[in-house]
């Protein structure tokens, strides 16, 4: 377990800390089960399948839902007892449609800025600034109803940003976007997390997306913590070579093991850590020696997805 996870949870140096957080809905559905996690400021990816408890966690962080048991701290504050103080410093972008169609983006974001406690003129200025930062310029004076999905997502992001929060909670920000729109949204989130100095919690069911922009990944499944770690720690393992042969995979595995290569199986593929250029030669030599039809041999980064493979049933 890395050092940062061992800092006393619920202390105020952490961005978000939970301890044995459990949420059970009325019908006995457990959305979060004994979740203990602490993360530092930065860009945090919260990944999990649909229904893993991501939205429930966000709503507890905002003080919109009461946890059934356990402790939670956001920016050192307790959202269960002081939700207003938490919400004043947090911006939230919900997953679902949340924009009244007949208001213009500028009016809506200004209004919501005032609801966050900004004085009227400040709200107007910061609304146009926030909309500019998300890439909406002249069109901000048009009614939101005529916007594309990408523009609507940007407005939702701008309203979360208008009051200059210390933490942004983004629930599936790339939902409904085309690939180019996804890239643009992820770049924007990355910019907010780095240049703007605002911590961001990005919720997604697509690991491949968030791993590109995050410092820290938190994976949950069925309301339980699968793993939480710095992304650097997860991908720091050396690059690996993936070998796939059309037949004789077992033979090759045995042969490579005999060559003292730490080989592992991943479906039809064999993974071999890339120590140096000799590794290539050793593998190619082994394949040639056994006269196996080589299907592929390529170098790849350690995929975070592999790290989240459920190999540790109860990691906490």
């Amino acid at each position: 377990m890395p050092r940062w996870l061992r800092v006393p949870t619920l202390s105020d140096v952490t961005l978000i800390a939970t301890e044995s957080l459990t949420k059970t809905y009325g019908g006995g559905v457990t959305a979060l089960a004994d979740l203990t996690v602490a993360v530092e400021p930065g860009i945090i990816g919260l990944v999990g399948a649909n229904g893993a408890g991501k939205s429930t966690l966000i709503k507890i962080l905002l003080g919109l839902l009461e946890p059934s048991s356990g402790q939670v701290r956001v920016l050192g504050l307790d959202p269960t007892t002081d939700p207003a103080a938490v919400r004043a410093r947090v911006g939230y972008m919900p997953e679902h449609d949340a924009l009244p169609p007949d208001l213009s983006a500028a009016e809506l974001v200004t209004h919501l800025g005032r609801i966050s406690g900004l004085p009227p003129t400040v709200a107007r200025e910061r609304a146009s600034e926030a909309l500019r930062h998300v890439g909406l310029h002249e069109e901000r004076h048009r009614a939101v109803g005529g916007y594309s999905t990408g523009m609507k997502q940007r407005v939702k992001l701008a309203q979360a940003l208008v009051h200059d929060p210390d933490l942004l909670l983004l629930d599936e920000p790339t939902n409904g976007l085309d690939p180019a729109g996804r890239d643009a949204m992820l770049a924007l989130i990355h910019r907010i997390g780095t240049e703007f100095g605002i911590s961001v919690l990005v919720c997604s069911h697509l690991l491949g997306e968030v791993e590109r922009i995050c410092d820290t990944l938190v994976a949950i499944d069925g309301g339980r913590l699968l793993r939480a770690d710095h992304i650097a720690a997860m991908t720091s393992a050396t690059d690996v070579l993936a070998v796939e042969v059309s037949e004789g995979t077992d033979l090759l595995a045995a042969r490579l093991a005999a060559l003292e290569l730490p080989v592992s199986r991943d479906g039809r593929m064999l993974l071999v850590p890339l120590a140096d250029d000799d590794t290539y030669d050793l593998i190619l030599g082994a394949v040639a020696e056994l006269d196996l039809p080589l299907h592929r041999l390529d170098q790849r980064r350690h995929r975070v997805a592999e790290l989240f493979a459920p190999r540790e049933p109860s990691h906490a």
């Binding site: 207003a84 919400r87 939230y92 679902h96 449609d97 949340a98 924009l99 919501l112 406690g117 309203q159």
Partner: peptide, 18 residues
């Protein structure tokens, strides 16, 4: 009713507005 239909309420209730 408009606020209910457009789903804007989460944007209000995630702010310091009881």
């Amino acid at each position: 009713s408009r606020d209910l239909l457009s789903g804007v309420l989460p944007l209000y209730f995630s702010r310091p507005l009881p």
